[in-house]
Computed example of a mutant assay.
Amino acid sequence: MDFSLPSEHRMIRDTVREFCEEEIAPIAQDIEDEHRFPEEVFEALADLDMMGVPVAEEYGGLGGDQLMYALVTEELGRVSGSIGLSYAAHTSLASKPIEAFGTEEQKERWLTPLASGEYLGAWALTEPGSGSDASDMDTRAEREGDEYVLNGTKQFITNANVAGSILVKAVTEPGAGYDGISTFIVDPREDDGFEVVTVWDKMGLNASPTCEIKFTDCRIPEGRLLGEEGDGWDQTKKTLNGGRISIAALSTGLGQGAFEAARDYAKQREQFGQPISKFDAVRDMIVEMDRKIERSRLLTHKSATMYDDGEDVTRISSLAKLDASETAREVGEDAIQVLGGYGYTTDFAPQRFTRDAKLMEIGEGTSEIQRLVLGRELGL
């Protein structure tokens, strides 16, 4: 889709692609095997001004748009799903809501260090007892004077143990349903009563930390309320519109990485006196991978462009996320098949892309929830 990308976008994409090839690709499997968060990679991304791509320059960002951010996320996912996931959570979930809903003071205090890459951010919505029904939360924030006291547990929180700030959803008015949810900025380094309970070992994406966190009488100054009391759910819905574009972009990158591994292998691997790419079954499989990825990329770019134009992207972002996440998993599985026995080993990348891709069908709303959203958008 290069023909439609502005020159600045192509430049940023090419810069990140070169960085990924030189700095991330050589360690991508190692950091997974070691379950190690690669802090040095994010420091280098900060040096490239990539940690706040869609954030305004006045707050330390690059001043880019959602399309530029999607391009960067895709390139990261093309070599490492873990790095792409931590980057996406930091940008779309932890940073953009502060820019969209925060006061000027909050933006200067909390957004600037995020966008400049001083530290990463996290976003805490899911709880042990709430998944797709995210509004059914037990975490409470009770007002006491000029503070709020947080109590509760959040589950599957990306970056929580490496974050400098976490946006936490909590109930401020029990019994009010969606209208009783608010958002708070928590400082995990300074706030007493915050604890990382678990860092999960996962099927994939193990270089991106996924945590269970607990709040026990965690006192938050009233100035850390994001927006007004009761704004939390509306903020969540708007945030997830951008978040779905993030996952679509990351999924497209995962699919692209698996496709390239399969294509390159098929051109080099010989059986019966010729490269296996010359056999119809293998060639057709690789062609189908390319078709699916290009479709997902087009949907992702369309949703990002509509987002930048201020249009309602509920339908198109759900469509992009659903299509790209399922494409990533399907392409990964087919890439393993092309490589045969080698594809099942950690010496080759398709197994990693496939394991990473599965989360894309779960996070930011499962595929089943996306179909529910799309049905509603179609009036069904």
Rank of each mutant, 00 (worst) to 15 (best):
F3K: 15
S7P: 08
S7F: 11
S7Q: 14
R10K: 15
I12Y: 09
T15R: 15
E21D: 12
E22Y: 01
A28Q: 02
A28P: 04
E32Y: 10
R36A: 10
F37I: 01
P38E: 04
A46E: 10
G52L: 04
G63K: 07
D65F: 09
D65M: 06
Y69N: 08
E74P: 07
S80V: 10
G84Q: 05
H90C: 13
A94F: 05
A94Y: 02
S95L: 05
P97W: 03
F101Q: 00
E104T: 13
K107S: 09
R109A: 06
T112D: 01
A115E: 02
Y119K: 10
A124R: 00
G131F: 02
S135K: 10
D136R: 12
L150I: 14
N161Y: 03
N161E: 13
A163C: 14
S165V: 14
I166P: 01
T183Y: 04
V186A: 03
T198N: 13
M203N: 06
M203T: 07
L205I: 08
N206Y: 04
C211D: 05
D217F: 01
G230D: 03
K238W: 11
T239L: 03
T239C: 04
N241R: 12
G242Y: 10
I245F: 02
T252Y: 01
Q256C: 05
F259S: 05
A266W: 01
R269Q: 10
G273A: 07
S277L: 12
V282P: 05
M289Q: 14
S296I: 09
L299I: 11
T305A: 03
T305K: 07
Y307F: 15
D309W: 07
G310Y: 14
E311P: 00
V313Q: 03
S317V: 05
T354N: 06
S367F: 02
L372T: 07
E377P: 00
L380N: 13
